[in-house]
């Protein structure tokens, strides 16, 4: 196994880890991190699977693509992080409401939910009414 294959395999592992993190974690920051890892894994595969030039230098075409890809990934991360941060601050929870498990509604209990005051009740209602999974 050449070092190139090694890095390509690492790229595959990182890509799948990122996919699992994106789909499997509820916390929005980890979802953003997961998408970032999927990108890094794809870049690694792209670069390691391309043939080398005689001098050991990597193929310039995937190099250019990965280079711009990194820049675009940063801007996408910034946008996603900005939205995740606003969801967290405005609802008091860094998750999407679909990720919160729902239970059978018990109207009696719904009234005593006033523990964290910095969250408008309407957002919480949105979280509880949703039916996920």
């Amino acid at each position: 196994m050449t070092p190139l294959t090694l890095y390509a395999l690492a790229g595959a592992g990182i890509f799948v880890l990122g996919l699992v993190g994106t789909l499997g974690r509820g916390h929005l920051f980890w979802k953003v991190l997961g998408v970032n890892f999927m990108g890094s894994g794809a870049f690694l595969i792209l670069m390691a699977a391309s043939p080398r030039l005689p001098g050991g230098e990597a193929d310039p075409v995937p190099q250019a693509m990965v280079l711009t890809g990194i820049v675009v990934a940063v801007s996408a991360t910034a946008l996603a992080l900005g939205m995740a941060l606003r969801v967290a601050v405005r609802t008091g929870r860094p998750y999407l409401s679909e990720d919160l498990p729902t239970k059978t509604p018990e109207p009696v209990e719904e009234s005593d939910v006033e523990s964290s005051p910095d969250r408008p009740p309407k957002d919480r209602a949105g979280g509880e009414e949703s039916t996920a999974h």
Partner: peptide, 27 residues
């Protein structure tokens, strides 16, 4: 190690630097 010095420069400044700073300030 993969012979992509151009990419390494951008990764250190952007992937580690700017993205890291973004996550730190968001944290």
């Amino acid at each position: 190690r993969l012979g992509a010095a151009n990419v390494a420069l951008a990764e250190a400044a952007l992937g580690a630097g700017v993205t890291g700073a973004l996550f730190l300030t968001a944290f």
